[in-house]
Amino acid sequence: MTYGFIGTGSMGRTLIEALIRSGKVKPSEMIVTNRTKAKAQQLADRYPGLRVAADNRQAIHESSVFFLCIKPGEFRTVLDEICDVVREDQIAVSITSPVMIADLEKWLRARAAKIIPSIANSVCDGNSLFVPGPRLTEEDRKQLWDLFSAISQPITIAESDTRVASDLASVSPAFIAFLMEKLADAAAEETNLPRETALALVTRMAHGLGRLLTDGGFTLESLQERVAVPGGITREGLNLLQEDIGPVFNKLIRLTHAKYEDDIEKVQQSLRAKIEK
């Protein structure tokens, strides 16, 4: 089995390295390509056996399953280049959420799926979002599920839920990290605690919080109730957060959805020209 990767940017590299780190895929079972070839070569240098293709067409030609790890605006160019070498016996996986499976199937003869990874997959944790295309066989589904189970907890979602599920599984690590940094900064600004100490405390806290929620039997609600005793400092703090944060996360979801809808429209406009010919 050979796995091809078109694109070795942030998420493409995360996926490649996670699969190698998990032991599920050997470097010798991978062939990669990138618009900036030096980035692909860096991976090959780091993981002996991993091959760098001369171009996208070679990566596709030599793959049984290939991953499209590219930005929405690059899809038209890449699909133009590879569409005539894609075969019916291949599986095409897009990790780019605004690209619709129906559009992939109009351009490519392969059986298609959308799987959205998370930065947490780099440590073989977190979720991956699995949107199977209608052409996938049951064997295909099992193969992809088994592959991503090595680096994550896959979850099947409807394509219409891709954006909101991505906000929670793939984007929120950045949002939560931002909030944690702001909490540490406030502590350092309001007291004599060194910023480095504040950052170390919230970072280790997050590690323990994750374990409490996964292994400790707590839910988000029950954890708050355990820590926030009536009349205590934590309860006062939670009341302040409830009052001041207000609808900020609702605004955040609306913002990401607006950007997502705009990206979908741009991608579909770029792909529609050939489809209508």
Rank of each mutant, 00 (worst) to 15 (best):
V202C: 01
R235F: 01
L179C: 14
P194K: 14
R226F: 10
V248G: 03
P230W: 06
A177G: 12
F218H: 10
H257E: 03
G237D: 01
T234H: 03
H257L: 11
E221G: 05
E221D: 03
L193G: 02
G217S: 10
I253N: 05
L193N: 02
A228V: 00
A186H: 12
H257M: 11
E261Y: 06
L193F: 10
G246W: 06
A198I: 06
L241G: 07
N250V: 12
V248I: 15
E189W: 02
T234K: 10
A177P: 06
N239P: 00
F249Y: 09
V227K: 10
A187Y: 05
T234I: 02
R211K: 15
A187D: 00
T219G: 07
K251T: 14
I253Q: 10
V202A: 03
V202Q: 00
A200Q: 04
A186K: 07
G231A: 03
G217P: 02
D262Y: 10
H207T: 07
R211W: 02
T191Y: 04
G232E: 02
L193S: 04
G217R: 04
A187K: 09
G231V: 03
I176N: 08
A198C: 07
A206D: 00
H207F: 06
A198E: 01
Q224T: 09
A198D: 01
F178P: 01
Y260R: 08
E189F: 00
L209P: 00
L252T: 14
P230F: 10
L255C: 12
V227R: 04
I245C: 13
H257P: 00
H257R: 14
L179D: 01
L241V: 11
E196F: 00
A200R: 04
I245A: 14
P247G: 15
E196R: 13
E196C: 05
Q242A: 15
L240A: 14
G246Y: 05
V229T: 13
R235N: 01
L240V: 12
A228C: 09
Q242S: 14
L223N: 05
M180C: 15
A184S: 08
G246N: 12
A206H: 10
I233V: 15
L209N: 05
G217F: 09
N239A: 15
T256C: 05
K182R: 15
H207E: 07
L241N: 00
T203G: 15
L240I: 09
G237I: 10
D185C: 04
R211V: 10
A198T: 03
E243D: 02
G231M: 03
F178R: 15
E261C: 07
R204Y: 02
V227F: 05
T203P: 01
F249M: 15
I253T: 08
A186M: 09
L183P: 00
I245T: 13
D215N: 12
Q224M: 11
Q242C: 10
T197F: 06
L238S: 03
T234G: 02
G208N: 04
N192E: 14
F178M: 13
T219Y: 05
E196T: 07
T214A: 03
L255N: 09
E196D: 09
P247N: 15
L240N: 06
T219I: 07
T197E: 05
L252G: 06
D244N: 11
G237R: 07
L255H: 13
P230A: 08
L255V: 11
A188S: 14
A184H: 09
T203A: 13
